[in-house]
């Protein structure tokens, strides 16, 4: 066993370690999420069915949604369900009529992923471009302007930006629709057109963060001695950037992207509600309002898993591209 571990390539070992750590985090998250429901005060079934429900109906309902089993067993049933892609049934189920959480979530998740990837496609190249530019010409008027502008957008609530865009681009000049209502047979172009405003809002939210972080990462890098050395040798500016800075910049840049895509997750909730976009964020908010715990749990788990996965990917890419991380202590 030990010999096999020593023979393993150091990259592979680090990657496996990170994977294991990610799985451990996911496990703790699942325990946290499922134990929260156990703290639910009062009898849940009674609250859903109303005070007039007879004990028999309550018992039948509890049996239907699995509330009659002990907490530990329920946790394992839930984890088993999640692993097989099921999330149990919604509390809006009634006796004889089951609503699967997975069926509720799948179309919503697709919509959210569509919106998120549309935003990422616009935001990532834009932010990297602006960030590198601001780092190269730091303390110039361009850098200062971009710096104040991004500091301002970072501090604003998402709904403020969403409503400003909506006011000008949808109500006063009616260029885009103010509500992004799509369903599964909306054609692609129509879908993109309707998603413009939400995607634009999210872009504004994350470009600022991503750009500032890219700028900081690049400036940090440009201050290192070997860049100084390359410059003193008389290398051209572009060659210093392309040959010396960029290979070492991939790790921080990938981290920045992953961090901001994770940040996108939170922005999505508010933006979906503003534009009544049928995504998973809105589903979660509705479920919180109606206290539909299985749906809330499933959404929370999906959000958390995405977050963990993004960070894990960033970690692994950083390891694979950064020569210094190849030899951990």
């Amino acid at each position: 066993m030990l010999a096999a571990r020593d023979a393993m390539h150091p990259i592979l070992r680090t990657v496996l370690q990170r994977l294991a750590l990610g799985l451990l985090t996911l496990f703790i998250v699942s325990v946290v999420i499922s134990s929260l429901v156990e703290m639910l005060p009062g009898n849940f079934a009674k609250r859903i069915l109303g005070q007039a429900a007879t004990p028999e109906t309550v018992a039948a309902f509890e049996k239907e949604i699995g509330l009659d089993k002990p907490a530990l067993e329920r946790y394992f049933v839930w984890v088993g369900d999640v692993v097989t892609g099921e999330f149990g049934s919604s509390f809006t189920s009634r006796v004889g009529y089951q609503r699967k959480v997975a069926d509720l979530i799948t179309p919503r998740l697709k919509n959210t992923l569509f919106l998120a990837s549309m935003t990422a496609v616009i935001a990532v190249p834009l932010a990297l471009f602006l960030g590198i530019l601001a780092a190269l010409y730091r303390n110039s008027w361009f850098d200062r302007m971009v710096n104040s502008a991004t500091l301002t957008t970072i501090s604003m609530p998402e709904f403020f930006m969403a409503y400003v865009l909506m006011l000008f681009l949808a109500v006063i000049w009616q260029i885009f629709p103010s509500l992004a209502s799509v369903d599964h047979d909306t054609p692609l172009w129509e879908r993109i057109y309707r998603c413009t405003l939400p995607a634009l809002t999210l872009t504004l939210v994350i470009v600022a963060h991503m750009m500032r972080m890219t700028r900081a990462a690049i400036i940090n890098l440009l201050a290192s001695p070997y860049i100084e050395m390359a410059r003193l040798k008389g290398m051209s500016k572009s060659r210093v950037i392309m040959r010396h800075a960029l290979p070492n910049a991939w790790a921080p840049i990938v981290n920045v992207i992953a961090f901001n895509l994770a940040y996108l997750i939170v922005g999505v909730v508010v933006v979906e509600v503003v534009f009544t976009y049928p995504g998973i964020g809105q589903l979660m908010v509705d479920a919180v309002r109606t206290k539909d715990m299985p749906v809330v749990q499933a959404c929370a788990l999906i959000f958390a898993a995405t977050y963990i996965l993004l960070n894990l990917t960033a970690d692994i890419i950083s390891i694979a591209t950064n020569p210094r991380l190849l030899h951990p202590r």
């Binding site: 985090t25 996911l26 998250v29 946290v32 999420i33 929260l36 429901v37 703290m39 639910l40 005060p41 994770a262 940040y263 997750i265 939170v266 909730v269 508010v270 979660m284 908010v285 479920a287 919180v288 206290k291 715990m293 809330v296 749990q297 959404c299 929370a300 959000f303 958390a304 977050y307 963990i308 960070n311």
Partner: peptide, 14 residues
């Protein structure tokens, strides 16, 4: 690992 808004939503649902 759970974004703070999501965590808050989840707890407030209780």
């Amino acid at each position: 690992a759970i974004p703070s808004l999501i965590f808050a939503l989840m707890v407030l649902a209780i």
